[in-house]
Simulated assay, not measured.
Amino acid sequence: MQHTQQDNYTAPPGSVLLDARLSAGKSVGEVADALNLLTSHVEALESNDYSRFNSPMFARGYIRSYARYFGLDEAPLLNDCERICRRDDEQAEKKRPQAKIHAPGQAKLLFALLGTLLFWGISYLLFSGHSSPELDVSLMEDRYVPLHELRAQPSLGESLLKLPEAEYRAADPQLYHNASLRLVFNEDVWLEVRDAQGAVRLSGQFAKGEQRQVSLQGPVQLALAYWPAVDIEYNQQPVDLDGLAESNAVRVQIGEL
C-alpha cells in the first residue's frame, strides 16, 4: 500500500502514521492485527508516546513496521523518533534532583574516592587482559508461510519459523564456548533455542512477564516469532536486533567473536 506524502514529513511521526491510517480507512484494531501489535501500541505510536515501551528500540521497530505497511519513507520517521526520545531523556534528566555537597571536607573525600576508582579501572583494563568478548549476531535464512495460511494454524509462531530438522546444522567446533542466555518476555511470544550442536534447549509459547535463563554451549540459534517483545542477554551482554532484522519474525545465530 503506497502513500502519496512526500518523504520530508513536517509533522511528528505519530501524526504521519495516524494520517496514513485514516487515509486508508483503517481502524486501530485492523492495523494492530495486520502488524501483530497491541492496540495500545498503535495508539501510543500515533500519539508519539514512547514511554509506554520498554525502550526506544521497540518504538523504532514498531514505527518501521507501521511505515512499511502503509508505504511510507521510514527514515525521517525514525530520525524524528530519535529526536523525541532524546528530548524526553533530557527533560527527565533536568527534573532529576542533583546531589549537593555542602562541606569542603565531603568534596575532598568524594574527589579522592573518584580518583581511586579511576586509577583502579585504568589498571584493570591495562593489566587484567580480561575484556568482554564482542558478540557476533547474524541473520539466518528465513522461510515464511503466506499470511492467510498462518492465520489458520493453531500456533502462529511455530508455523512461521519452524524449519525441517535437516536444515539445522551444528556450528564449527572451533567456535564452541560456554554461554548463558537470558530472556525476558514483554508480550506472549513463541521461540525456539538450539545450542551449538543443533539440539533444542528451549521451545514453545512463553507468556508476558516470564523470564528464562539457559546455560548451554554456544553459538546458539534463536528463532523468534516477534523479537521486539523479548529482551535478550547473551553472556550478560544485551543483544540488539534493531537494524539487523527486517521483520518481526527472525532466526539468528548469536556467538562470541
Rank of each mutant, 00 (worst) to 15 (best):
P104F: 03
F206Q: 04
G243T: 05
E30H: 11
A152C: 05
F58W: 09
E256Y: 05
S138L: 01
S138R: 09
S131F: 10
S40W: 09
K108W: 10
S203D: 08
T10K: 14
H41N: 13
L244P: 09
Y62H: 12
L125W: 12
R83C: 06
E167N: 01
G61M: 10
Y62T: 08
A225Q: 02
N186H: 13
L160Q: 07
E158M: 02
E82S: 08
Q6V: 14
L150N: 02
A225H: 02
L17Q: 13
A34P: 10
V239Y: 00
V193K: 10
E30C: 11
P133L: 02
A34M: 10
P154H: 05
A196F: 01
F119Y: 01
Q197E: 10
R182M: 02
N48A: 11
L161E: 09
L110H: 00
I122T: 11
A112M: 07
I84A: 12
H130V: 13
A34T: 12
R251C: 06
L45Y: 12
P146V: 07
A11Y: 10
A179F: 00
P104R: 03
L37E: 05
G14N: 13
L113S: 03
E210D: 09
L38N: 15
F185T: 12
S23E: 13
M1I: 07
L244S: 10
S131I: 10
L38G: 15
E43Q: 15
W120I: 09
